[in-house]
């Protein structure tokens, strides 16, 4: 199968590679670029464990072809914070026990990151609706919702203080 030349920006870093036309973005990230934060839970876009941010939108990278991502700007969980400077969502998920086995967590936080860009002050109902594309088998979501609300108010407080 002839390969395609793909260029991506992943977590701020330019990447170039040759991929088969059928190759999925999640496999490019995990297998070729060793970015293993996004996980594979279903391969049918139901579970959201593979959620990454692509050109400012949440996508499920198990059903995006690498070819479709050509030229795209991609952010994964690895790009949201650093060990010395965590994203507030990362802090709040821990603070509010918003994770257990951790398998859904990278996709969950990455989705929540985009949600808070789209709606900086969501209600509980809005969070539950906007997070419905990401499945968690461990937490029952209650503490995930709590963590996202806490992150939102923290981010808003920081914003207000800056103004």
């Amino acid at each position: 199968m002839s390969k395609m030349h793909i260029t991506l920006t992943v977590n701020g870093k330019q990447e170039e590679l040759l991929a088969e036309p059928r190759e999925l973005l999640i496999h490019v990230l995990r297998e070729r670029l060793s970015i293993t934060g996004p996980h594979i839970g279903c391969e049918t876009s139901h579970c959201g464990a593979c959620t990454v941010d692509m050109n400012g939108k949440s996508v499920k990278s198990c059903t995006v072809l690498a070819a479709q991502a050509n030229g795209a700007e991609i952010t994964t969980i690895e790009g949201l914070g650093t060990p010395d400077s965590l994203h507030v969502l990362q802090t709040m998920f821990r603070e509010h026990h918003g994770l257990q086995c951790g398998f859904c967590t990278p996709g969950m936080i990455t989705r929540a990151y985009r949600l808070l860009q789209e709606n900086p002050d969501p209600s509980e109902e809005e969070i539950r609706y906007a997070m419905a594309g990401n499945l968690c088998r461990c937490t029952g979501y209650q503490n995930i919702v709590k963590a996202i609300m806490a992150a939102a108010s923290e981010l808003n407080a920081v914003k207000e203080a800056a103004q």
Binding site: G37, I77, P106
Partner: peptide
């Protein structure tokens, strides 16, 4: 555990 899980 969460320290590593939240950072992927």
């Amino acid at each position: 555990e969460d320290v590593r899980f939240t950072q992927g």
